[in-house]
C-alpha cells in the first residue's frame, strides 16, 4: 500500500433511486490523486447524480466510500471544503459582477487575503479589466472559464466538472483542457464528465457508465482492446451509402458513415466478414480491418447495456 498513490476517490456500491427508478446502480470507482478521469455515458446515465453524490449534494441510498480520505456519508461538509464542483448549467450569479461573484465564493470558504486572491485570479483569467462587468454579459466560453476559476479559487484537492465544455468553441475548449492538465500537474484530481470523444482521449483514464451501471474503465486503449469488437472500414466512392443496406444484417452491429468512409462493426468476427462479403467483390471499394474508435466502442457498450437493462 505504501508505494501506491493515495486514492482521491474510492467508492463502492453506490446506489441512488429517484421515484423508484435506479439512476445509479452499484457503482464503484477508484481514482488515484493527481489523475484526470473522464466520465462518459449517454444522457440520463447517472453521471450528474454520481458527481452530486461525490460532492455531498445527494445522499446515496446505499454504498460507501471516501473522497480525499473523508467518509462520504459523515464528513460531507469537510469534503465540500476541499472539493470544487462545477455544475452543468452556469450557476454563478448573472446579475452580480465578475468580481462580486468571486468575492462571494472567497467569503463562503472563509479564505484569508481575499482581495489579493480574487485580484490575482482575475488577472490569471484575463478578466481583470472587466471585473466590474455583470457576469451575465459574458460569452459562453468566458462563463465556463470564470466558473472554473470560481471553483478552484479555494484551492481544492478534487475537482468535479459536469460537462464543462458543452457548447463551447474548440479554441476555448482547448484552453480549458490545458488548464485542467496544469491543475492535475499540481496534484489536483479531476473527474470530468463529457460527451466529446476527443476530450475523453485527453483524460488519463475513462470511466464509462450507462443506465446507472459501470460498463468499462481504463485508458482509452484498454477500453478499446478490452471490448471484443471488430471493425472493417470501407473506402471508395459512395462507401457511406452502404450503411443502410448493411444495418440489420447478421453479424453487423453497427454501420456508421465517417465522411465518405464506412465503419462496420460487430462482435462475431466470422459473421461480420460474411455480412460484408457481398460488397467486397465490387472492386470499387477498398475494405480493410481497422481498430474500432472509442466512439464505436461506446455505442456498442450502450446498445449492449440497453438490452440487459430492459
Amino acid at each position: 500500500m505504501t508505494n501506491e498513490t493515495p486514492l482521491a476517490i474510492d467508492v463502492r456500491g453506490l446506489v441512488k433511486s429517484f421515484g423508484g427508478r435506479r439512476v445509479v446502480d452499484d457503482f464503484s470507482m477508484r481514482i488515484p490523486e493527481g489523475k484526470i478521469f473522464g466520465f462518459l455515458g449517454p444522457n440520463g446515465s447517472g453521471k450528474t447524480t454520481t458527481l452530486r453524490m461525490l460532492c455531498g449534494l445527494l445522499t446515496p441510498d446505499a454504498g460507501e466510500g471516501t473522497c480525499l480520505g473523508l467518509d462520504l456519508r459523515n464528513q460531507a461538509p469537510l469534503i465540500k471544503r476541499q472539493t470544487g464542483y462545477m455544475t452543468q448549467k452556469f450557476s454563478l450569479y448573472e446579475d452580480l459582477t465578475i468580481r462580486e461573484n468571486l468575492e462571494f465564493v472567497a467569503r463562503l470558504y472563509e479564505m484569508d487575503k481575499r482581495g489579493e486572491r480574487v485580484d490575482s485570479a482575475l488577472r490569471d483569467l484575463g478578466l481583470y479589466s472587466r471585473r466590474d462587468q455583470q457576469t451575465g454579459t459574458l460569452s459562453g466560453g468566458w462563463k465556463q472559464r470564470l466558473a472554473l476559476t470560481a471553483c478552484i479559487l479555494h484551492e481544492p484537492r478534487l475537482l468535479l466538472l459536469d460537462e464543462p465544455t458543452a457548447g463551447v468553441d474548440p479554441t476555448a475548449r482547448r484552453d480549458f483542457w490545458d488548464e485542467i492538465h496544469t491543475l492535475a500537474g499540481r496534484g489536483i484530481t479531476v473527474l470530468v464528465s463529457t460527451h466529446y470523444m476527443d476530450e475523453a482521449e485527453r483524460c488519463h483514464e475513462i470511466v464509462y457508465i450507462a443506465y446507472g451501471k459501470l460498463l468499462a474503465s481504463g485508458t482509452s486503449d484498454e477500453i478499446i482492446d478490452g471490448t471484443k469488437l471488430f471493425t472493417w472500414r470501407a473506402h471508395g466512392p459512395d462507401a457511406d451509402r452502404l450503411a443502410g443496406q448493411l444495418r440489420g444484417k447478421d453479424g453487423v452491429e453497427m454501420a456508421v458513415a465517417f465522411g465518405a468512409d464506412l465503419h462496420v462493426s460487430g462482435t462475431d468476427e466470422a459473421a461480420l466478414e460474411a455480412a460484408i462479403q457481398p460488397f467486397r467483390g465490387t472492386g470499387k471499394l477498398n475494405w480493410h480491418p481497422t481498430k474500432p474508435t472509442l466512439e464505436d466502442v461506446f455505442i456498442h457498450l450502450t446498445a449492449g447495456s440497453k438490452d440487459n437493462f430492459s
Partner: peptide, 13 residues
C-alpha cells in the same frame, strides 16, 4: 430555478 442553488449547496454554507 436558475440553478445557482446547486452551486450554493456545493459550497460550505
Amino acid at each position: 430555478e436558475r440553478g445557482t442553488m446547486e452551486n450554493l449547496l456545493a459550497m460550505p454554507v
